[in-house]
């Protein structure tokens, strides 16, 4: 079909806008990358005015990777994302699916009860005591179990299940499937796009685990990456031992940015895979529609 001139110019405008947005988003990331590879002395001399380093330096990376903690923390964060995400998806989708069925008796009450939990925040002491009483302090599961699902995701996912027609379910029921069978054999495959999206949400949340680790993990060997990063990026000399400055290693700007890059690399590695999976999910979703 022929396109009108108006449509043409709109198409061009869209491309231009998208490129502009892409560049704006990309530049800070590029800059971080460049700074991380700059020689620390060159950085100090040029006061950060670097678009391309004179000499690529691996000094910051060499230093970071020489500490075992960094790799340790990365594997903790990876464990959280890899183990936590499927668990979260099963629990969230199970509850969300049940709540999306109108025959589920008591669903309105449950929904309201769940909504309330999204709004009342009891602070951090009561959850801390609970985790302690469950014997999870210093246990890596304390970073997964208390955040397995959230009201926000249950409610959002429920609206996805809402869109799946009830006839499918009825047909399966006639075929002798029970609810669990229907859920795993029909509903989950049908909602792959939603699962992919929520899987990403959860994976990111697990990857960025921070404050609960502050509270529940005493052993620095079990720190997730974000806690380590915070220690490097945020000034510790303000809150720490003000006078006792002997050999406190203050990470330079280049070292900080190298840490940022390393923390982002694992994401970049799984990123294409996730995106492909996600795209597939979206396609399935459109077939379904």
């Amino acid at each position: 079909m022929k396109e009108s001139i108006g449509d043409r110019s709109i198409a061009v405008a869209i491309v231009v806008i998208l490129i502009a947005i892409g560049l704006l988003t990309f530049f800070p990331l590029y800059y971080v990358f460049v700074v991380s590879f700059t020689d620390p002395t060159e950085y100090l001399q040029k006061q950060g005015f670097i678009l391309f380093p004179l000499k690529w330096s691996l000094a910051s990376y060499r230093y970071l990777l020489s500490t075992s903690t960094f790799l340790n923390a990365t594997s903790v964060s990876a464990f959280l994302a890899i183990v936590g995400t499927p668990l979260s998806l099963i629990i969230t989708s199970g509850l969300a699916y049940s709540l999306s069925r109108t025959r589920f008796w008591g669903r309105r009450v449950l929904l309201i009860l769940i909504l309330i939990t999204m709004l009342f925040n009891p602070g951090f002491i009561p959850p801390y005591l609970l985790v302690r009483d469950l014997g999870l302090i210093n246990n890596i599961w304390s970073l997964i179990i208390p955040v397995l699902t959230s009201g926000w995701y249950v409610i959002l996912m429920r609206s996805f299940f809402d869109s799946i027609p009830a006839e499918l379910e009825e047909a399966a029921m006639i075929d002798g499937c029970n609810d669990i069978g229907i859920f795993f054999r029909i509903m989950l495959p049908l909602s792959l796009p939603a699962l992919a999206a929520f899987g990403l949400f959860y994976a990111v949340a697990y990857w960025n685990t921070f404050f609960s680790a502050v509270l529940y993990i005493n052993n620095p060997q079990q720190w997730p990456l974000q806690l380590l990063l915070q220690n490097m990026l945020i000034d510790s000399s303000t809150s720490g031992d003000a006078g006792m400055t002997s050999d406190v290693q203050i990470p330079s700007q280049t070292l900080k940015m190298a840490a940022v890059v390393i923390a982002t690399v694992p994401i970049l590695c799984v990123y294409p895979f996730l995106q492909k999976h996600f795209a597939k999910g979206v396609m399935l979703g459109s077939v379904k529609g």
């Binding site: 049940s98 449950l110 005591l129 609970l130 609810d179």
Partner: peptide, 21 residues
């Protein structure tokens, strides 16, 4: 079976959201 599916989620909300309240 529908309730069974919802059970882990409901338990989670009870223990981790309502107990600390």
């Amino acid at each position: 079976y529908l309730y069974l599916l919802a059970l882990p989620g409901i338990l989670f909300f009870l223990v981790f959201k309502y107990v600390p309240m």
